[in-house]
């Protein structure tokens, strides 16, 4: 069994604890086996893991609703499950947008590396008109900047400036680049400026780096999280209302 498969199944085993005890004792071994066999047959482990996680959350919520009474612990578990699922959606959405911000810089670095084998990297960027990273126009744009750094991590050339100077990220990231090859990191030179940086060492020992503003992605994340917060508040209100109605009628929740 691969390490990734072992991790996914361990997480799923933990997720099964979200189910009501009686259901879990009856079906958990079979569910685990089904998950394991399905994983080995899946074409995309990432998508499968995500669908397995969602299936688990939805299934556990459904089973709690089937068996729940108006008792406070049952309502608390349901509320917790709903909260957990919203947090999972938020984290997933955040990861999608954050990784999306790396895509353009990564393409630039790959392309630059392919062309840089035959020419001097330092001359590649000289023709480009420098953009100002701190300017609102660049921060709101989706245009990545490109820069080349020497083996010590000092900037050699760039098609953008930060307050008039060539952009100089912390030198520590270049060691990580040297160790891991392609390296992605969020660079925040100052408050209000956040950049998705992607870098890779070139054959010459220099580093090829491209960066894109994260402002647009983070604004979208923030807006989405606001919507989720409203949904969460409505869920809480709904649960409270359901609790009051059921309590007044003295009945259990529908199965």
């Amino acid at each position: 069994m691969k390490l990734s498969e072992r991790i996914v199944l361990s997480l799923y085993r933990i997720e099964l604890h979200l189910y009501p005890g009686k259901f879990r004792r009856r079906y958990a071994p079979e569910m685990l086996e089904a998950a394991q066999l399905s994983y080995s047959e899946s074409r995309s482990p990432l998508l499968f893991s995500l669908s397995l996680a969602i299936d688990g959350i939805v299934g556990a919520t459904r089973e709690h609703l089937r068996t729940a009474t108006t008792s406070v612990p049952s309502m608390a578990v349901i509320t917790m499950l709903l909260t957990f699922s919203l947090v999972a959606v938020s984290v997933f959405h955040q990861q999608i947008l954050r990784r999306g911000a790396d895509r353009a810089p990564q393409q630039i670095v790959s392309s630059l590396k392919a062309h840089a084998s035959s020419i001097e990297e330092a001359t590649i960027l000289q023709a480009a008109a420098p953009a100002e990273i701190a300017s609102p126009a660049w921060l709101e744009s989706q245009s990545p900047f490109t820069a080349i750094y020497n083996a010590q991590g000092d900037v050699v050339s760039a098609n953008a400036t930060l307050h008039g100077a060539l952009p100089q990220p912390p030198r520590g990231i270049f060691k990580r680049m040297r160790d891991s090859g392609l390296y992605k990191v969020t660079w925040q030179p100052e408050s209000g400026i956040r950049v998705a940086l992607v870098g890779e060492p070139a054959a010459s020992g220099q580093f090829l780096v491209a960066g894109q503003s994260l402002i647009k992605a983070e604004t979208r994340i923030s807006r989405f999280d606001h919507i989720l917060l409203w949904i969460w508040a409505m869920e809480l209100f709904g649960m409270l209302l359901l609790y009051q109605v059921r309590r007044a009628k003295g009945t259990s929740l529908p199965s």
């Binding site: 079979e30 089904a34 998950a35």
Partner: peptide, 22 residues
């Protein structure tokens, strides 16, 4: 058994272990 049901059911609908055993 459960997994065999799931395999066949997946030919025409999406189904995970939670949906199946629920």
């Amino acid at each position: 058994h459960g997994y065999a049901i799931m395999q066949e059911a997946r030919q025409h609908t999406t189904m995970g272990p939670g949906t199946l055993y629920g």
